[in-house]
């Protein structure tokens, strides 16, 4: 369980990191928290020729909570985001989800952006980004020499030299199991999680074999109420229910009703019908599908309760 040989790069600036990534292309892999990559290397399941360690790029460590949402830099650890009060105030689903991510030791080291780029459909954060309609900001050398239209160059992306920055919406970012839109030479510099709208609530419910394990099934829910406290929007995102996080809009099933009389069961059935779980050594697909329904209803009810209390 020792990795195959690789060249190790420890850039001191984002510019330097982008240069190395540009030079090595597909042979390079970015090392941030290492909570997925290092085991893959040690089991010789991955053999990148170059590791680009971004742990010295402290300019990417920020967690910025703004009125419209939370921007999380590529080096921000799960634990930092989990403990950030401004982040939790702006978008409570972040903390709700992060508490389900592995264990404190893993969260101390693992990064939110790293988890997104790893794009494991069993992981919580891709589902969160998908449900909230967030995005991932990717930067690379070359290209037109100016930022893509509509995207401002944030402080984490250096000036000097030509570069391309693009914000990829969650719906486009996750392209398959362990596959994302981040291409060769690209560095995910940050991710943006939109803030919780008024009169709305979130919840994350999952069933895992052991505390902190990847969930057998998990559902994140977002419920928005109107001024009369009736449901105007309800949606869930499921983990382990397909090749990418599964987003299911269930506003219709819930009905324009107060939470107490909403059509939760119908909504849960709709989610269940859309789920495409698979058999594995821990559970059958049939059981997982059943769980998706149970958890969708529980998560929607919890989210609606939060919305009423908020």
């Amino acid at each position: 369980m020792k990795p195959p040989p690789f060249d190790y790069h420890a850039p001191r600036s984002v510019a330097e990191a982008l240069d190395v990534l540009a030079a090595e292309g597909e042979r390079a892999k970015v090392l941030a928290g290492g909570q997925s990559l290092i085991p893959l290397l040690n089991m010789r399941l991955a053999a990148p020729g170059h590791l680009v360690d971004i742990n010295r790029l402290t300019e990417l460590a920020g967690v910025e909570a703004e009125p419209d949402g939370v921007r999380i830099g590529a080096l921000a650890r799960h634990a930092e985001v989990e403990r950030s009060e401004p982040a939790a105030a702006a978008q409570p689903l972040l903390r709700q989800a992060l508490r389900l991510v592995a264990h404190p030791v893993v969260r101390n080291r693992g990064t939110v952006v790293g988890s997104l780029v790893h794009a494991d459909p069993a992981a919580e954060l891709p589902a969160v980004l998908t449900l909230l309609g967030g995005s991932v900001r990717l930067a690379r050398r070359g290209g037109p020499g100016t930022p893509a239209a509509g995207v401002s160059v944030s402080p984490e992306v250096p000036a000097g030299g030509s570069l391309t920055v693009r914000d990829v919406p969650a719906g486009d970012f996750f392209t398959g199991p362990l596959e994302s839109a981040a291409g060769p030479g690209e560095l995910a510099v940050s991710a943006f999680f939109p803030a919780l709208p008024p009169r709305s609530g979130t919840a994350f419910r999952e069933v895992a074999r052991r505390h902190g394990d990847y969930a057998l099934a998990g559902v994140a829910a977002l419920v928005v109420l109107d001024d009369d406290l009736r449901i105007t929007s309800a949606a869930v995102a499921c983990v382990s229910a397909g090749p990418v996080p599964l987003l299911v809009e269930v506003t219709g099933e819930c009905g324009h009703r107060p939470p107490a009389s909403a059509g939760w069961a119908g909504a849960a059935r709709a989610v269940q019908d859309r789920a495409e779980p698979e058999d594995d050594i821990h559970a059958t697909a049939g059981y997982r599908r059943h769980l998706v329904g149970v958890l969708a209803e529980r998560a929607l009810r919890d989210a609606a309760r939060e919305a009423l209390n908020g």
Binding site: P39, M43, H103, R209, R210, H211, G212, D213, I281, H282
Partner: peptide
Amino acid sequence: LLNASFMDFLMPYATE
């Protein structure tokens, strides 16, 4: 052996 790691061989944690 499909679960030859502590990720898939589920030794209980203190929480279990």
